[in-house]
Design a protein around this nucleic acid. Sequence first.
DNA 1: GTCTATACAGTGATAGAC
DNA 2: GTCTATCACTGTATAGAC
Lengths: 184, 184
Amino acid sequence: MARTVFEKADAVALVAEVFRELGYEGATLSRITERTGLGKGSLYHFFPGGKEAMAAEVLAHVDGWFAANVFRPLEQDEPRLAIAWMWNTIDEYFRSGRSICLVGTFSLDATRDRFAGAIRGYFTRWIAALQQALIRAGTEAEAAGRQAEAVVIQLQGALVLSRALHDETVFARTLRRLAAELPR
Amino acid sequence: MARTVFEKADAVALVAEVFRELGYEGATLSRITERTGLGKGSLYHFFPGGKEAMAAEVLAHVDGWFAANVFRPLEQDEPRLAIAWMWNTIDEYFRSGRSICLVGTFSLDATRDRFAGAIRGYFTRWIAALQQALIRAGTEAEAAGRQAEAVVIQLQGALVLSRALHDETVFARTLRRLAAELPR
DNA sequence: GTCTATACAGTGATAGAC
DNA sequence: GTCTATCACTGTATAGAC
């Protein structure tokens, strides 16, 4: 059988998907091995810190992706454009609700305490970035804060409900509703 | 050491709390034993079906509680009164966001597939009950459906964010915002 | 970098004494 | 009903060959 050689970046992306689907506790090493095709040897070569290091790197990877594709545009680009861009990016990223938010999953059980800093950082930056964009688009500061928080809440909630009902239309519908409520 | 004798109802309530805090995979038998004070002997006496039966009964218990305290009032009582009652009940139940939704937690990882029916039933009945109340309060049917779904989404999302940020005010703020948007 | 073999604690579950 | 002892198995992690 042909050996497949991975780079670390590939490994992180593959492992991320397993954590996303199964949660931290549900993602056992054997399931990670089985779903990624990476043997234990490879996994511990890439992540000498073991399972906790895998999850930490995966969180950092997700945060980096959002920083580049969502947070920075909101912070720096033309605000209405960045907000419109966010709806599309988010819809693609969560595959219209079929995939879910790894950070959200980690928030709900005791995994939160293991990665408290990374989890808090992700959400606070998202809310702050969106608030700034709204302010620059002409919204009053306090209202912008409330609105930004409400958007993140509804995205997370829509992911929960989408998955609970096996119904992708929930997420798409929520995105459309939010887009209509915010400055365009 | 004094032996404490439990009834099954006590056992279900105690076990529920462990699943809520740790999730299905995180709630190992030893952690359940340690946090409830119930030995394995007692647990398997109450739940011959093992861990999966524990979670199933816990889900049924949660559903029963919501049926009595949230769904039936929405379905049968004066709608504006039932909606006002819901905000208070929910706030207490989730201890203002410090506690989270067991059904929501189970929705996000592979646990969903284990209890798909119970999970879907809980959310569909909640949304349908709220939609009916809104219709009886004078809202047009389709708008009532959208609004009911949005409320459940935002409650779930607020629980995620509350926990992620260690910030209870998120949940309280969301409840107030929702209460202001719905008929009173 | 990937594999195999292996350590050893922890997993869900059962049986029998009280 | 509750306890203790124990089962077979899976959990994370490590070591060494290639």
